[in-house]
Design a protein around this nucleic acid. Sequence first.
DNA 1: AATTGACCGTACTGTACGGTCAATTTACTG
DNA 2: CAGTAAATTGACCGTACAGTACGGTCAATT
Lengths: 212, 212
Amino acid sequence: MTDVNVSKIEPIQRKGRDARRQAIIDVAREVFLTEGYAAASMSEIAARVGGSKGTLYNYFPSKEALFAAFMGAECQIEGTMAHQINDAEEADIAAALTSIGGRLLRFILSDKVQAIHRLVIAEAPRLPELGRTFYEEGPRKGVTMLCDHIERWMDEGRLKHGDPFRAAEQFGELLKAGLHHRKLWAVADPTEAQIDSNVTEAVRIFLAAYAA
Amino acid sequence: MTDVNVSKIEPIQRKGRDARRQAIIDVAREVFLTEGYAAASMSEIAARVGGSKGTLYNYFPSKEALFAAFMGAECQIEGTMAHQINDAEEADIAAALTSIGGRLLRFILSDKVQAIHRLVIAEAPRLPELGRTFYEEGPRKGVTMLCDHIERWMDEGRLKHGDPFRAAEQFGELLKAGLHHRKLWAVADPTEAQIDSNVTEAVRIFLAAYAA
DNA sequence: AATTGACCGTACTGTACGGTCAATTTACTG
DNA sequence: CAGTAAATTGACCGTACAGTACGGTCAATT
C-alpha cells in the first residue's frame, strides 16, 4: 500500500540473480542431455548447482518450465551456429559445398547436437511445440541458408533449375548418409576419415544431379 | 531328490503358456510404443492384459526383461519386412528403384516404425546392445538387400562402379530427405504427394550420379 | 474325488520423485 | 547498528512406481 517509488526496488540484486539463473540452466543442460527428461531429477540438479530444491523452485516454477528455459537457450545457440557454418566465400561451387558440408556434418555429429536430437525426438510427442521450435530455430534455419546459396547459383545458371529448398535438404541428407543414424543408435561413432569421405561423396552426387 | 522322470513335466501346458506370453508381449508393445519406456507402468500392462501383476512377474522377471523380449520380437518382425520390400522383378533400374523406394519410404514413415525409432533412439545410450541389435536386424538388413541389387547392376555394367553399400545408404537417405525428421520431430506428417515426389526425385538424383 | 499349480485380487514394502513451506540466513537500507 | 525484505534452506507432503506376499479360486490332470 505505502509503496512509494516501487520502480527503485527492481534492479536491486539483478546481477547475482541472473548469474545464478544462468548457472542453474547450465547444470540443467548437462543433466537433461545426459539423463533425458524423465530420468533427470530436480533434486540432482539442485545438488549439482550447489543449492537446495527450494531455491531451484524460486527460479523456475516447475520441472517443465526449467526444461523449456533450457531448450529455449539451446535452440538459440544452435540457431546462431548456423550462421557461422553457412558463410562460404569460395567462388567454386564444389569448394563451397565441401567447406560448408564439412562444417555442417561435423556440427551435426557432435556429441552435444546428438544429445539434443535424442531429447527432442523422445519428448516431441509429449511436447509438440518443443519439436516445432527446435526445427524452426535449428535445422530449418540451416537448410534455409544453404538454400539461399543454391538458389543464387541456380539464378546465375551455374546449377540446374529446380526447388532449391529440396535440393538443400537432399544435400544435407547425403552428407549424413548412414553416419548420423549409426551414431544415434549407439552402433558406431563416425571416424574423421568417414566424415571426409561422406562429404566428398555428397558433393560429387549433388553436382552430378544439379551441375548445369 | 526323488525326481524320477523330470523330463515329463516340461511340456505339460506349454500351449496356453506360450499364448499368454505372446499376449503379454503384444500388450507391452502397445504400451511401450505409445508411452515410452520410463512412462510405461507394469501395473498398466497387467491391467490391459487382463491379468494380475503377480502373473506378469511370473512370465518376466523384471520390467527390463519384458522390454527386451518385446524389442527382440519387434526386431525380428522388422527384419522379415525387409524381404518383402526388396524383391523387385522389374528389369528397368529406374522402375525397380521407384518400386522399392516407394515401399521402403512408406514403411519407414509408418507410425509403427516411427514409434520404434523413437524408443530406440531414446534408450540406446542406456541399453547399448538394444541399438546394435535393432540396427543389425532392421536397417542393416534392408540396406544390405538393396546393396545386393546395386552390386549386381554394377557388375552388369548398368551402373557406375563404386561402393554399393554406400550407394544403397545414399539412396535410402535421399528417399527420406526432410520427411523422416520432420515427422520424428512432430513438425509435420508427410503427405502422399510428398512421398511420391521424394521417391521420383531420389531415383532421378541417384541415377544422375550412378547411371553408366 | 483328490491333487496340482497356474492364476487372481489386493494389500503391502521400500524407494524416489515433484513440489511446498515455515523457519532461518543473508544482504541491503535508513 | 537496527530493521526489513528477499534469498535460501532442508525437512516435509502426497503420489506413483517396481516388485513382493499371500489367501483364495478354478480348470485341468491323476
